[in-house]
Nucleic acid binder design. Structure first.
Lengths: 198, 198
DNA sequence: ATTATATTTGAATATTGATTCAATAATAAA
DNA sequence: TTTATTATTGAATCAATATTCAAATATAAT
């Protein structure tokens, strides 16, 4: 009987990530994934139900990883909300520092226009958002954050900003380094654009 | 000889906008656009070369409008860069205040994963970005803005944040009002999240 | 060496939807 | 009323690609 060659599930996932990153989910071809993974198109369907299942597997792994790390930071009691906030920003950027493909691939996963089922990672996504809210409320409670903001607005604004930066960075990692991004984002979120004394 | 019925170009554009907004460009069906516009699929191709041409028409009109308004603000000499910045934010939100569909539809237009030609509106997009840069540099020159920021980073961060908010707002205009969004964004951009005195 | 069986293949099939085009409809012109 | 011409139609055609499946391959077991 024939024995299995290598770890095909993982190879297919890695190939798929590259193809989703480069072309976007709608334009990603299963044939291309197979080609990069070094298997036949038929093999793709031996390991995954369909194209969408591959995409969901990638996204779910990412969310699980992100939420795990964000939760660890949120639950710390030895740092202020300011430090927690900076930590959340670091987690977001660090998740991609050596994986520009991943940054490009996640661009769309929580947009309505990808017609995919989101049952499982939507839960992680909502926890992801609630962690940001908790940190904000902690900051308000300890007097470090301005209570006049609407947390929903700020949360989405910061997330949208980080996503846009990650996408731009993933397109050209040499231009804007991840460290430049994180530094600017942290300072901007703390103090805004105004010069000191204004 | 048969005479033309109504303004079919415009009706098709408006129908297309709704379909692009609801389904996203890749999943938008020409048949659906025709149905909503009240014409036959063949008619779509009488007025527009193809599906992509319709999308580009919508996006180009939007960019032209936005850039025109942003340029007017940028070129004012009677207001500070701070007021200009607020004005830019207002233009962005005001462009959509009575058109949630439009906000949803533009979500993807400057993302790489939509495989569409962008020759003409890329120019407007770059001017759009350069206006933001000019306002920032004006602010630094007049001592109102912190010169330590990288303008590229801040520009993309703010744009990404506004986009995410607009998208969320377009999904549910009753939840977060446009005025709540603009107020929070302006203040946050000015002073950041920290409470006063920190 | 032969057989059994799991793995893999890649062309065939199924499906979808963009686009075309021959026919029809509607109106102006004669 | 008839003819000419423009506008419109919607099924047919075309193209693309996801998915299936019968056949082939490779190895373990006998």
């Amino acid at each position: 009987m024939r024995t299995k060659e290598g770890n095909k599930e993982q190879e297919i996932l890695e190939a798929a990530l590259r193809v989703f990153a480069e072309y976007g989910y709608p334009n990603a071809k299963v044939g291309k994934i197979a080609e990069i993974a070094g298997v036949s198109t038929g093999s793709i369907y031996v390991y995954y139900k369909n194209k969408e299942a591959i995409f969901i597997e990638i996204i779910e792994r990412l969310w699980a990883q992100l939420v795990g790390q964000l939760r660890m930071i949120e639950q710390r009691t030895d740092i202020t909300a300011i430090e927690k906030f900076d930590g959340l920003i670091d987690v977001l950027f660090d998740a991609f520092v050596d994986k520009p493909f991943l940054a490009r691939a996640i661009l769309n996963e929580f947009q309505e226009d990808i017609n995919i089922t989101k049952a499982t990672y939507l839960e992680d996504y909502h926890e992801f958002l609630s962690i940001g809210k908790k940190v904000f409320l902690d900051g308000v409670a300890e007097g470090n954050f301005n209570p006049n903001f609407n947390v929903e607005v700020i949360k989405l604004f910061v997330l949208g900003g980080v996503r846009m930066l990650l996408h731009q960075w993933a397109n050209d990692p040499q231009d804007l380094t991840i460290n430049l991004l994180r530094q600017n984002v942290k300072y901007f979120c703390r103090r805004g654009i105004l010069a000191q004394g204004r």
